[in-house]
């Protein structure tokens, strides 16, 4: 099994008036078809780590390979290209564009990648939304949908370009328990049924325990790779 993400001594220091260490000396590997939780107290560097892995930020020190490619020295355009084709993001808030329908929101990353024809994009966006139970909501705007539905549109948008890796930052953090469970089940199915790798920052330790393994951060450092009760599938 090849690794989708590999880091060695990844460190990010913010050079403000007083230097602030966000993450320090993180060495890890995440393979294909893995369902990984990132946990830790507030301010422990969970989101900062996710931003680094997602190429939204650059490390101060250390190396980062994404899909087998060393990312240091890449131009912003190269990083953006990798991000667009290889990584899908889901955040605590949906960040859907309010003036666009569900389908149009899902089409936006495809338009950026510009690999499909317009009718094919439309078709694919519809398929993705239908597969997440949103067949009746294709032409609704975000303000016409519930919180849980909007978050499912955000998941569909993350899948738009069929990336192997989904990075999620508190994806259920603003949902009630029923909708949280629904979104969790969808993320799990992405790993088990569609072969994606999902790395999710979460405060919810019960949820983390249901994932393949847990990366626990304390003060920006990795506190060991904690096994969880769920055995990892072959």
């Amino acid at each position: 099994m090849s690794n989708l993400i590999e880091t060695r001594n990844l460190t990010r220091i913010l050079h403000e008036t007083v230097p602030v260490t966000l993450v320090k000396d993180i060495t890890l590997a995440i393979g294909e078809r893995e369902f990984v939780a990132v946990t830790g107290p507030s301010g422990s560097g969970k989101s900062s780590l996710l931003y680094l892995l997602g190429l939204l930020d650059r490390p101060t020190e250390g190396t980062l390979f994404v899909a087998g490619r060393e990312t240091e020295g890449m131009s912003e355009a190269e990083r953006a290209a990798i991000r667009l084709s290889t990584i899908g993001f889901v955040f605590q808030f949906h960040f859907l564009l309010p003036e666009f329908t569900a389908r149009e929101n899902v089409e936006i990353p495809m338009r950026r990648l510009a690999k499909l024809s317009r009718p094919a994009m439309r078709e694919r966006a519809g398929e993705l939304l239908r597969s997440l139970g949103l067949g009746d909501h294709l032409d609704k705007r975000p303000d016409q949908m519930s919180g849980g539905q909007r978050q499912r549109v955000a998941v569909a948008r993350a899948l738009a370009n069929d990336p192997p890796l989904i990075l999620a930052d508190e994806p259920t953090g603003s949902l009630d328990s029923r909708n949280s469970e629904q979104v969790f089940t969808i993320l799990e199915a992405l790993v088990r049924e569609r072969g994606k790798t999902v790395v999710a920052v979460t405060h919810d330790l019960d949820m983390a325990a249901r994932m393949d393994r847990r990366l626990h951060l304390i003060d920006g450092m990795l506190d060991g790779n904690l096994p969880t009760e769920t055995p990892k599938p072959d």
Partner: peptide, 16 residues
């Protein structure tokens, strides 16, 4: 804090 998409640059969001 909840209105800007963390995965897009500021430029991309204004241009949109």
């Amino acid at each position: 804090l909840t209105a800007l998409n963390p995965a897009l640059t500021i430029g991309e969001q204004i241009l949109e």
